[in-house]
Amino acid sequence: MSTPERRTPPGLPSVADGSADFTEAWLANRRLSAHTRAAYRRDVQQFLGWCAGRDLDPLRASFLHVNAYARDLESTVDGRTGRVLAPASVARKLSALSSWYAFLVRLEAVAANPVGGADRPRVARDVSSTIGLSAAEVDAMLAAAERLDGPTAARDRAVLALLADLGLRVGEVVALDVGDLGAERGHRTVRFTGKGGKARRRALTPAVVRALDDFLAVRGDVPGPLFTTATGGRVDRHAVFRLVRRLARDAGVPAWERLSPHSLRHAFATTARDEGVPLEDVQDAMGHADPRTTRRYDRDRYNLDRDPAYTLAAARSRRSRS
């Protein structure tokens, strides 16, 4: 018996017609930050381009095609780093593609999700590939920012302060508007859209407040994007990448060429844990749904001195003396 042909649901264009596709409908159906939405769009478009190069209809792709695509990704050189894509990057691209296909399954445009049976790379949940920074190196970068001069100095200091003191994602920082700054119950605050489209709020440290106030004194408090370019456009994440590396270089950080804004987020978490901040508080601050994600940043988690067996033995000893 032949398999019935899957047809595009009424009101939606076909993937292959070139005029539009399901991607925007899929993205509109998800609560995502602008940065995540853009990344997912790129991930799906990359796969659609791969299919087009092989004259393959994406609606007829099988897990074998997805496997072949994944192997191609694993040998792809990242133009920014000059290295092949990390397993985590490949896994993220396939995760986005799986979500896209799951949407098509619900629309009955495809019979099954071909990514479900694919061979995805294994990614260790308790290991972060991000190049980290020590607390002293972050301090040195903040000091380098204080030495900046020129028309963007106040803006750049405020950007770095948000990354360093709050551990925000670069996409969260560049998406901020002036109206996102506020005050609640005696705290100066910032509201932003976190990963997964979640509305979040964080308290601002005194150093961040000073940096923002100095910047707003120059910028003015007119509505619109908080951080803008000389032409009035919103500062993008690539400009922040360049800023972080330039300040790391000026601060004498050895690995400055391999750093990213996420390195400061990594440093926020590791330093907080080093200073004894409870894991759940760090998890809440970073907006992690899974505590295992936060645990990756705890560099001292394998220290045998922290084995709970010692704590239990000490308690037993105290009880025996009482």
Results as ranks from 00 to 15, higher is better:
R201T: 14
R155E: 00
L243M: 13
R245S: 03
F227L: 01
R210K: 09
A203Q: 09
D236Q: 04
L204M: 12
E172D: 06
R246E: 12
P223T: 10
L160K: 04
V240D: 01
L166C: 15
R201W: 01
L176W: 09
V209M: 00
L243H: 06
D180S: 15
L160P: 06
P206K: 14
D213W: 09
A154W: 05
A158R: 01
R245T: 02
L168Q: 07
T193Q: 15
V190S: 03
R210A: 14
D156I: 06
L226N: 00
A161G: 03
G182R: 11
F227K: 01
V253R: 11
T228F: 02
D177K: 09
V222G: 14
D180V: 10
L204F: 07
G167M: 02
V178E: 05
G224F: 11
L163P: 00
A239D: 02
R219M: 09
V244C: 08
V240L: 11
V244G: 03
A183N: 08
T229I: 07
E172V: 02
A161T: 01
V253G: 09
T205I: 08
D177N: 15
D177Q: 11
D250E: 15
F215P: 00
A239Q: 12
W256H: 15
F192T: 00
A158N: 09
G194T: 11
P225I: 06
A207W: 10
P254T: 12
D165C: 12
A255M: 04
G197I: 10
E184G: 03
L243A: 03
R242W: 05
V178D: 02
R201Y: 03
A164R: 04
T229C: 02
A199Q: 15
K198N: 06
V208C: 10
A158I: 02
G194E: 05
R157N: 03
A207L: 13
D156G: 09
D214E: 13
G196V: 14
A158W: 03
W256A: 15
R188K: 14
K195A: 09
L212V: 06
G224E: 12
G197K: 05
R185S: 14
R246S: 12
R246G: 12
D213M: 03
W256R: 04
